[in-house]
């Protein structure tokens, strides 16, 4: 009875246009709000333990005095050949059929090998139980697990939104359309530097952008085949 409208498989990918990124960090805030990311505070941040699923890295182009600051949002690259996945002894980190690099929180026992083996340092660990100062605990997203002390977490491509989008499509009896599913960071980006979509659909925006000749992948030489394509004009 179930699955009356079986659609073809998806492959979720993202394109980040570095030429458009202004480094405003709206995506970081949106991600915190959407995904119940714990508030770390100054102390933990100074110890390097602030959890950000997406972070803005800074680098400089040109020689003084013609220096320009450039920004690069870095998040979990959802690699096809993810180095973090096979090293997990309990399958907490695994690859979903839709190309997501999934982290199952209640399987994780916190050996932290995945964190070491991620060349992008995209994985974050819960060193303590989470805590929100009032009234922030009133805004928790009911669709996202609150992660406990002792486990790994990282960007999920807002898997709850992907699921909601697919359920909606199922209710309406139609395939998922391009633009139906938007992660929080993509939704909030004021310059539309982030684009999300189904790479199996050749007409989707993400597929069209990823085919551009400005495209590159982060640490491409590592052979991890990331699902995130960066766009950058070479000056």
């Amino acid at each position: 009875m179930a699955d009356t409208n079986k659609t073809k498989s998806h492959k979720w990918e993202m394109v980040i246009d570095l030429d458009r990124c202004t480094g405003c960090e709206a995506c970081v805030v949106a991600c915190h709000a959407e995904n119940n990311i714990r508030i770390s505070g100054e102390d933990e941040a100074s110890e390097g333990r602030a959890i950000n699923w997406i972070r803005i890295e800074r680098y400089w182009e040109g020689e003084y005095p013609n220096v320009q600051t450039r920004f690069m949002p870095v998040l979990c690259q959802h690699c096809d050949d993810a180095p973090c996945e096979p090293v997990c002894p309990v399958y907490a980190s695994y690859h979903t059929p839709e190309g997501l690099n999934a982290q199952v929180y209640n399987r994780c026992i916190g050996v932290r090998y995945c964190g070491n083996n991620c060349p992008y340092t995209a994985r974050q660990f819960n060193w303590f139980d989470p805590h929100w100062d009032p009234p922030l605990e009133e805004q928790l997203n009911p669709d996202v697990t609150v992660r406990q002390n002792g486990i790994m977490e990282k960007c999920t491509f807002c898997v709850q939104r992907i699921r909601a989008g697919k359920e909606q499509a199922e209710k309406e009896g139609r395939p998922v359309r391009d633009g139906d599913i938007i992660p929080a960071c993509v939704q909030t980006c004021p310059t539309s530097a982030l684009v999300f979509g189904d790479r199996h659909d050749p007409e989707s925006r993400v597929s069209q952008l990823a085919r551009q000749d400005r495209a590159f992948h982060l640490l491409e030489s590592q052979g991890t085949h990331p699902a995130i394509t960066y766009l950058k004009r070479i000056a």
Binding site: D80, Y91, S93, Y94, N101
Partner: peptide, 11 residues
């Protein structure tokens, strides 16, 4: 592993 075929990156 065959009975529990979970994909992990590239292996």
């Amino acid at each position: 592993a065959i009975l529990y075929p979970i994909m992990t990156g590239g292996k």
